[in-house]
């Protein structure tokens, strides 16, 4: 317990230092946020324009799609804001900065997370909040307190899932000099294509997203519950599966760390 408290305290200190540094470049920060906002907004406009010609896509309405889009965008923005240190790991290893992390008596993953906290990544959040509101209003869902909780769990679960994927990607750097860019397919891919419920892409794709990389757990299944398309109320609990996935990815990270210590860079 004490260890958790002290880790949280240290993480808070890291963030405060990073924020103070960021604020020295206010204008640049402003541009970043705006730029990322526009980028995400492009995605929204894409959906808006597509649906101006078409009314539904496999029984999902425009509002349903926006709900799904905003959940994924929001999770990804949170995860990127917290986890950009993980994405920079390959560079840190190449420049030898990771050795410094190992020279300090703290958990390496905490320190890696503590190297970056990109508030600018929250730019897409403006779009996400906007689309979330439209989605909530226009989707087929009939809202109640339970459903609101499930929606929050989807966003939280998505954040955990993306963070786990970032950890997995970072673990790659311990095994290969090339970075774990291959996992960008899973993260950026999910951000790009996860705006549509995964069953749209077909049955086999849904299976992959259920059993291998559990996107469907934070997106398709709970969404079925929200939209009232299923009898199974348990679907609302599926976002919790992302925690199991995180645990698995963390084990791989530990394995990678061990490998790094025996191979060097």
């Amino acid at each position: 317990m004490k260890r958790i408290y002290s880790s949280a305290h240290l993480y808070g200190r890291y963030i405060s230092v990073i924020l103070r540094s960021t604020m020295q470049y206010k204008f640049s920060f402003f541009l970043m946020v705006t730029g990322r906002f526009i980028l995400a907004f492009n995605g929204f406009l894409g959906i808006l324009f597509l649906f101006s010609g078409f009314s539904t896509i496999r029984e999902y309405t425009y509002g349903d799609i926006l709900l799904c889009f905003s959940v994924i965008q929001m999770s990804f923005a949170f995860a990127e804001c917290i986890g950009s240190g993980l994405k920079a790991l390959s560079g840190m290893i190449r420049r030898g900065e990771f050795d410094r992390i190992l020279l300090r008596p703290r958990s390496p993953i905490l320190q890696v997370l503590g190297t970056k906290f990109e508030l600018g990544r929250l730019g897409p959040m403006i779009t996400s909040v906007l689309t979330l509101i439209i989605g909530i209003l226009k989707s087929q869902a009939e809202w109640n307190f339970g459903k609101a909780l499930v929606l929050a769990a989807m966003i939280a679960g998505g954040t955990v899932l993306f963070l786990a994927l970032f950890i997995l990607g970072a673990s790659f750097c311990f095994f290969s000099i090339e970075d774990g860019g291959i996992l960008n397919i899973l993260t950026y891919g999910a951000k790009e294509h996860g705006k549509y419920p995964v069953d749209i892409y077909g049955k086999r794709f849904l299976q992959v997203c259920t059993y291998i990389i559990p996107y469907a757990m934070i997106q398709y299944y709970p969404l079925q519950y929200l939209l009232g398309k299923t009898e199974h109320w348990q679907y609302g609990l599926y976002p919790l599966a992302s925690i199991v996935f995180l645990a698995v990815c963390y084990l791989i990270w530990l394995l990678g760390l061990k490998n790094y210590k025996s191979c060097g860079n």
Binding site: S6, H9, L10, R13, Y14, R104, P105
Partner: peptide
């Protein structure tokens, strides 16, 4: 100060 924190 941050290093102080890191090394407790």
């Amino acid at each position: 100060e941050l290093i102080k924190e890191i090394y407790s």
